[in-house]
Design a protein around this nucleic acid. Sequence first.
RNA 1: GCGGAUGGCCGGAUGAUCGCGUGUUUGGCGUAGUCCCGUAAGGGAAACCGCCAGAUGCGAGGAAAGUCCGGACUCCAUAAGGCAAGGGUGCCGGGUAACGCCCGGCUGGGGUAACCCAAGGGAAAGCGCCACAGAGAAGAGACACCCCUGCAUGUCAGGGGAAUGGUGAAACGGUGGGGUAAGGCCCACCGCAGGCGUGGCAACACGGCUGGCAUGGCAAGCCCCACCCGGAGCAAUGCCGAAUAGGGACCUCGUGCAGGCGCUUUCGGGCACAUGCAGGGAUGCCUCAGCCCAGAGGUCCGGGUUGGCAGCUAGAGCGCGUCAGCAAUGGCGGGCCCAGAGGAAUGGUCAUCGAAGGACGGAAACGUCUGGAACAAAAUCCGGCUUACAGGCCAUCCGCGCAA
RNA 2: UGGGGCGUGGCCAAGUGGUAAGGCAUCGGUUUUUGGUACCGUGUACCGUAGGUUCGAAUCCUACCGCCCCAG
Length: 144
Amino acid sequence: MIPPEAKGLCSDAIPSLSPAVSFCAPNTLQVLRKRADFLRAASARRQGSQGFMLQARARDDNSAAVRVGFTCSKKIGNAVARNRAKRRLRELARAVLTVEGHPGWDYVLVGRPNATIERDYAHLLSDLRTALTRIHGQPDAARK
RNA sequence: GCGGAUGGCCGGAUGAUCGCGUGUUUGGCGUAGUCCCGUAAGGGAAACCGCCAGAUGCGAGGAAAGUCCGGACUCCAUAAGGCAAGGGUGCCGGGUAACGCCCGGCUGGGGUAACCCAAGGGAAAGCGCCACAGAGAAGAGACACCCCUGCAUGUCAGGGGAAUGGUGAAACGGUGGGGUAAGGCCCACCGCAGGCGUGGCAACACGGCUGGCAUGGCAAGCCCCACCCGGAGCAAUGCCGAAUAGGGACCUCGUGCAGGCGCUUUCGGGCACAUGCAGGGAUGCCUCAGCCCAGAGGUCCGGGUUGGCAGCUAGAGCGCGUCAGCAAUGGCGGGCCCAGAGGAAUGGUCAUCGAAGGACGGAAACGUCUGGAACAAAAUCCGGCUUACAGGCCAUCCGCGCAA
RNA sequence: UGGGGCGUGGCCAAGUGGUAAGGCAUCGGUUUUUGGUACCGUGUACCGUAGGUUCGAAUCCUACCGCCCCAG
């Protein structure tokens, strides 16, 4: 599951992704905070999967940082369910995007009712990897 | 043993590994200012701050929820008191910072009982409403009727009456006995009203006397009475940065230019006044370029702000002992420190144990396999209320059954 | 976090204690060769849920549920 080059980098990782996520990674992740960033990511490329939906865009600024945002609406359930869904998505981002995320991109993970909480964690990992490869394989004119 | 009542408590456990927030501490790195060395370039120092790493402490709830009450705190304000409006509370006493909360009691109702439930002041201050039905729905009335008298024996006249019938949620006290032409009426008890006595702080209870039936219901209709309430809310509020930046309007003084009037003159000009204009001036020939001035004070208005810090957690705090009290609660003593986030931390994965439920085997006890735990997550803090909740534990009490 | 508002047939809605108007839509009929239009008729409401007050509740009171709006 874990790419071999990531294992050796655990000791000197720089975890700037604030919430509780168990992984060590070579890239730093920043958290999206502005609503405008979310809207821009949502209007760019998107790719659904069974456990969540992935939205992404290339920022076209000089920064190489990988930025991540999480969206869990009220459709998912009450506050307990929403927090739980966000935590699982953070764990996914920590495990995959730090290694396979493209520098200078913004990613937004959107939780889905039931699936994000109930789907097996290993399946979620493979979901995110396939979604990433598909989203970077899309042509540039992928706006809907 | 079965069924129930009340009060209290818990809210999956253990471990491995990878992580998150925050406090303390150690180390490393960094820089503006400061200090020291050096002629200088520069070098060095330690505190704060920032980043990183290590160690270590702590890290969601009984409801954190709904936002229904009450406060603390902050600002606006003056609201000390009175009045008015609006809102709230409503048996009595106590507790409390306060409450619509809690405790104890009273009254009424429910239950065999333990016990539970109740917005439970005032309807002789006034207004309003009481549909349909019914004769009549609130200071009375008489539909069907009942009784007496008269003689013209009737679908009659006069008089007495309100017991009976029907309607309705409710019909002007109820029941029984006596009496009467029928009744009013009289008596007893119950209810009601008004005094009195005893007990109680009081709500109220008990006893007895008098009256002689008057006073229908609704105040979660308006209202009356008593008491309480200024408004807004941590997205409150304060500070720092951007920034003593910058836009607009007006006023006063001033600046420059223009022409005007007055005074004065060495005829170049100077001084003073009001008006108009707003960019102007000087240097170099012009374009153009650079330079200088474009000020001071006051009043008012609009726009932008998605940065940071504080408020932000030691408190009406938690548990222990003791004393007062039936209790809620309070006093005293000593102990403890127990989340502070901000697109929002308290988690991910795995292993073991594990409740309900399901399947199989078995007469049953039970065994094996499966299954994998309710409601619900702090957002300034606190006291309550309400609502949601798998399963479990403890104590006291009641009824029934069995045994002695 | 705080403040405010609303729930009535499928949809829009009136109704402020006395047994739920109206319009659109649906359905049936007439007119028309047929459809549309027009006209006539018809059904559809435990008034968001649960308690309470009252003889009687969509209406009054209380508690819940759902939805919407506002703010620096």
